[in-house]
Design a protein around this nucleic acid. Structure first.
Lengths: 187, 187
DNA sequence: GGGGTCAGTGTGACTTTATCACTGAACGGG
DNA sequence: CCCGTTCAGTGATAAAGTCACACTGACCCC
């Protein structure tokens, strides 16, 4: 009854901005379907993708913002059309109080985020960019429709670096480049 | 009654290893005092400090390991002599069920970790090493007793890089270097 | 359909950081 | 005092980041 009036299922189209850095939390999204990309922009203006949320994830950043009253430190973009249940604070507290399953879900979301970020730190700090780029390419289905700039944000590096590494791969005959598109031929 | 028999307060001396990568969780430490450093070692063998735990933090990594059964991905060292309450799984579940305060504490711990890691990703991905080193030096009280190797792990870079940057700072008259010690003279 | 605009890409020049290999200096224990 | 070990310094080279600018394909619009 109370849940019925307070919970709200929303549908977000591709490219919709869920929140931006500095904004305050407007509700706690519990993902039902789709995919949301969370990224961060440094003072330098460079950005990097931190992690992605998918079905059953709750936005852990929103929990933090809700509880501390701070603004978001990152920004979130819808990558694939998504549905999310927007859980208000009161309901969240009640669910935490009453449902072990809900608590488990929250903890799992937090666990995934922590894991994602730890792996990311290691990647960014120690791994070579050419390896990371190749892995990233291999993890997609060719042809890939994306700009070098966007790949740069995925990997947390500069557009020029991506362009050069891709050109090198093209010279080796592993990819074929065209504007806004990469055909992976042999990796 | 039950808490009395199942909870156990432990005292850890400086340099004690709380856990290592790959090990399985032996209990959920809830920090009462002191400071514990959590760091990660990449396949390359390089290490980086991820964050620190202090009083009132619960080890979020342990929660994850406990729930998924996976081994730790990082390692934890006691920096300042610490006390921690080791909370067994059953008690943890009961506390989560019954204490809103406990739940809040858990969420705050998770929030801090997430925040720490997000900031770290940005630092490592985009900030210049000389700036980061200077900030790190300024955040301590001179003289600092530490090796260049250890500073490298703090910042996630190589020992040689730290040595060179420090030498440069010494040339500028901002620090004075000696074996295992740095005197910050003017920053 | 020619010209203009603009996002996307290519690349040279240079700086910063990482890696490798090696040297020498400082310290500590027998 | 000698010797082994840890710590620090440094040259050479490679990888990555930054800055500046040229080029090009796609699209629009008259």
């Amino acid at each position: 009854m109370e849940a019925l009036e307070s919970i709200q299922v929303m549908r977000f189209p591709r490219d919709k901005v869920l929140f931006r850095a500095g904004e305050h939390c407007q509700g706690l999204p519990l993902m039902l379907s789709g995919s949301v990309k969370v990224q961060m922009t440094g003072v330098s203006g460079n950005s990097i993708v931190l992690y992605r949320m998918a079905a059953d994830d709750i936005c852990t950043l929103s929990i933090g913002c809700l509880m501390t009253g701070h603004g978001y430190r990152a920004e979130a973009f819808v990558e694939e059309e998504s549905e999310a249940a927007m859980v208000p604070r009161g309901l969240f507290d009640r669910l935490m109080d009453q449902s072990a399953d809900f608590r488990l879900g929250i903890m799992e979301s937090y666990g995934r985020r922590l894991d994602d970020l730890m792996l990311l730190v290691e990647e960014v700090a120690f791994r070579r960019m050419d390896e990371r780029l190749e892995e990233w390419l291999q993890a997609r289905r060719s042809p890939i429709h994306i700009t070098h700039q966007e790949i740069g944000v995925e990997l947390g590096t500069a557009r020029e670096v991506v362009s050069r590494l891709l050109k090198e791969l093209e010279r080796k005959g592993r990819v074929k480049l065209s504007r806004g598109r990469i055909d992976v031929t042999g990796l």
